[in-house]
């Protein structure tokens, strides 16, 4: 039938155009990102570029607690254990650029191997030469003890929102959730070069694949970025991204439901109007 032939031509042309401006353009413009993802096999929750924890090394939480008291609390608070911050957050942000995190739950979201490496050499682990925390000259044993201690006190099974509040909110605001970044914007601008973007709809701006790769290894995706590698473990990162999706697209479920109803309605409409058309046109000369 002639009409169907015309329709087929239109469909083919539209599909060629669609393929050109969507998948093709995307694959060419985002080539460097896809290449980085392939090169480093992102997200890499094994943190392959970091040194492995020496075999046989066992962490002792008790010793870790003492080590934390020696090395960490001159900057960090551990509120859970009744240790308060040595200086108010504003003053801390003035001197470090960001507010140093409270250590109560940090062990619950970070990968063990990453945290071990981070304690030994923060700049290398975060892949950020400007990272505010200095290397402390810890021995392997001290580092693994601290890891064991932080893991032992941290809250288990944190929700996506808690992970994001723990891992991201020190620098990022989430305006639409009424969450304000802990560090003031002006000190962060000095420290990082720009105010970190708001996370309210970042999921829509960046997409899941990009976020997974970027959070896991920022320098591979956006060389020179001020964002440090945070070192979230697989579970924490997946929860965090699921939360970011949920807040950026809160009506996803309703959209699918309404969409199905509307399409079903229109399908019936197509049937009715087709019958009507046949009825009217049958009697034509």
């Amino acid at each position: 039938m002639k009409e169907l032939k015309i329709l087929a031509v239109i469909v083919v042309l539209v599909l060629i155009g669609y393929w050109g401006i969507e998948p093709l353009a995307h694959s060419i413009m985002h080539k460097h990102i896809e290449e980085a993802i392939k090169k480093y096999n992102l997200p890499d929750f094994k943190f392959s570029d970091l040194d492995p924890i020496p075999s046989g090394l066992q962490g002792n939480p008790q010793a870790g607690k003492e080590a934390v008291k020696t090395f960490c609390i001159s900057c960090h608070s551990v509120k859970k254990e009744g240790i308060n911050a040595p200086m108010p957050p504003q003053a801390a942000a003035q001197s470090f650029g960001v507010v140093p995190p409270d250590l109560s739950n940090i062990g619950g979201i970070l990968d063990e191997k990453y945290l071990f490496n981070f304690l030994k050499n923060p700049q290398k682990a975060t892949e950020n030469p400007k990272f505010a925390m200095p290397a402390l000259g810890l021995s392997d044993q001290q580092a693994i003890d601290i890891v064991a201690y932080l893991k032992s006190i941290a809250k288990k099974n944190m929700s996506g929102k808690e992970v994001v509040e723990e891992g991201c909110v020190r620098c990022h605001s989430i305006k639409y959730q009424k969450i304000q970044a802990l560090s003031p914007p002006d000190t962060m601008k000095k420290y990082l070069g720009k105010v970190p973007p708001d996370l309210s709809v970042i999921y829509k701006a960046k997409g899941e694949e990009y976020l997974h790769a970027f959070i896991n290894k920022p320098q591979a995706i956006l060389p020179g970025t001020g964002m440090p590698r945070v070192g979230l473990d697989k579970e924490a990162q997946e929860k965090a991204i699921a939360y970011l999706e949920e807040i950026a697209d809160p009506h996803k479920e309703q959209r699918t439901k309404v969409g199905i109803i509307v399409l079903a309605y229109l399908l019936v409409m197509v049937g009715l109007t087709y019958a009507w058309k046949r009825k009217i046109w049958k009697n034509l000369h």
């Binding site: 229109l266 409409m269 109007t273 087709y274 009507w276 058309k277 009217i280």
Partner: peptide, 8 residues
């Protein structure tokens, strides 16, 4: 009549 069908 045909238009309704196309529109649907």
């Amino acid at each position: 009549a045909k238009e309704y069908f196309v529109m649907s």
